[in-house]
């Protein structure tokens, strides 16, 4: 019997260790697993590395983890969103580390981790400061920079519906990083608006097959 459903957001994030790398879905406010982030806040893990596109887009999401000094480092593409005030304050004070990654590279580094690959060469950023001292190769006459895989200890993802096997469908542009993050973490935790019976999701439309999912909690939003 496979049943990945858990009864509460607290149960969903139980066991999160200090020092973990946590992949957090969302782009702007769309697709952010706010209820799971709140559960992490309650759970108390600290010294976290958070991988997410924006460094918070309001008081209630990753910004709250920063405010409560739970976050050692942010790996993201765009920390300057409206509402990411806590990040900017902590960054200016030197109290949080930032690793800035181009958005497509951020996603592809997690894809590589989930796909069992040792990294990839990309032209993105190869002529920029973000290439740093990374290996550069000319491939097809063009400069490419080597990027490492980016695995998580835990992924926190928001989807629309799930069955007890953890098969997922998403809604609109809230899908964003979810399907990739679900593949890239040792423990993938998903919040959904509603559970459905096994067999109720159209198999042609399942976006994340349950093999990538460990825990699912119904939150009603």
């Amino acid at each position: 019997m496979i049943d990945k459903r858990v009864a509460s957001t607290a149960a969903a994030v139980a066991g999160l260790a200090d020092g973990s790398t946590v992949l957090v879905g969302g782009f702007g406010a769309a697709g952010v697993p706010v209820e799971l982030v709140h559960a992490v806040l309650e759970q108390g893990a600290r010294d976290l590395t958070i991988v997410t596109n924006n460094a918070g887009s309001g008081e209630g999401d990753v910004a709250a983890l920063i405010r409560e000094r739970r976050v050692r480092k942010i790996i993201c593409s765009y920390p300057r969103s409206a509402g990411s005030v806590w990040f900017e304050q902590f960054w200016a004070a030197g109290e949080i580390e930032l690793e800035l990654v181009p958005q497509g590279t951020l996603s592809e580094r997690m894809r590589a981790a989930g796909a069992g690959l040792g990294g990839f060469f990309t032209p993105t950023g190869a002529d920029s400061l973000l290439a740093g001292d990374k290996e550069v190769r000319v491939i097809g006459g063009r400069r490419h920079v080597f990027e490492q895989p980016l695995p998580g200890d835990v992924a926190l993802v928001k989807a629309f519906r799930a069955d007890r096997w953890g098969n997922l469908v998403y809604r609109a542009a809230a899908r964003n990083f979810g399907p990739t993050m679900a593949t890239a973490a040792a423990l993938t935790v998903v919040q959904v608006r509603e559970f459905v019976e096994l067999g109720a999701l159209d198999p042609e439309c399942v976006v994340t097959p349950g093999v990538f999912v460990d825990r699912v909690v119904e939150v009603g939003v």
Binding site: S77, Y78, P79, R80, F87, E88, W91, A92, L98, L100, V101, P102, Q103, G104, T105, P123, T124, G125, A126, S128, L130
Partner: peptide
């Protein structure tokens, strides 16, 4: 200001 890049580099090269 903290640096921010988003998808600009991916679009420019692609």
């Amino acid at each position: 200001m903290p640096p921010a890049v988003g998808g600009a580099m991916d679009l420019a090269v692609g």
